[in-house]
Design a protein around this nucleic acid. Sequence first.
DNA 1: AAGGAAGACAACCGCTCCATC
DNA 2: CGATGGAGCGGTTGTCTTCCT
Length: 300
Amino acid sequence: MGRSPCCEKAHTNKGAWTKEEDDRLISYIRAHGEGCWRSLPKAAGLLRCGKSCRLRWINYLRPDLKRGNFTEEEDELIIKLHSLLGNKWSLIAGRLPGRTDNEIKNYWNTHIRRKLLSRGIDPATHRPLNDSTSASHNQEQQQQPSSLVAATATTTTISFASSVSASASAAVKQEQDTLTTTSATCNANMFVGIMEKKNISMERCPDLNLELTISPPRHVDEPDHHKFSGIERSLCFVCSLGLQNSKDCKCGYATVNANNVNGSTNSNGNTTTTASGGAGYDFLGLKPGSVWDYRSLEMK
DNA sequence: AAGGAAGACAACCGCTCCATC
DNA sequence: CGATGGAGCGGTTGTCTTCCT
């Protein structure tokens, strides 16, 4: 296609940033805000590529960054999220306030990978290293149509490695409780479809129970927009993921919601509606009362 | 004390996604 | 609807530091 380079490499500095460059970048962003990274270097008087400026700001200079060592809780959360999301570092970073994707990626490669290996866990699959079934299991999943995978899945728990800390175990237990005590039926095929659409590989969730029944729990203070035509109903799994306008919606929310939106719809047609107040479920640490908008994970 | 190995992390590169024209 | 460009992401590399012999 032959696109132009993002900057004139001949006239840009590379390598470590100097204090002066940092100061220039900070003061410029303080004055003008983030964005327009391509034009920022020139405007700020920096001999740097726009991408380099963006990276320096996001990974190092941003005022809301949390520096210092990762806590044990953060460790376990990263492991848990990685088992769900794979190498989606930006998504994982979105669940760890003050941490950047680059930081987490580096930390994973230098610390957690080794930590898991020492526990006898494959960092890539989150299954025991000597588990001969894991490889073939994954292979089967890749070869089979998703519907077949769903039909043949028989495990009943979501496994986040075997030797997690007590606190992480409690968190997992809480999520499992949330997942298994809800009412509406999750169509396994639909779930696989969502996972595929969102690029979440089923390989990453090897033990994920595809026969889960899943929905937000019922709550006495359920907001009115969950009561379709005045009748209280549970959201289907698609809607619970924040994909209320999806054609995969099975609960009818999409249809009803088209006429009764409590939020906004962006140019993609993706609703950014969230439930206000009321019911609480905590899938991946969502605030009580929120419907999971997948994009909200990208918090940078 | 010196030098090599390993670890840690900042930064770069190339690709993809998405909005705009 | 395809081309284009900006922004963001994930993989990889480079360099500095620490550890070990």
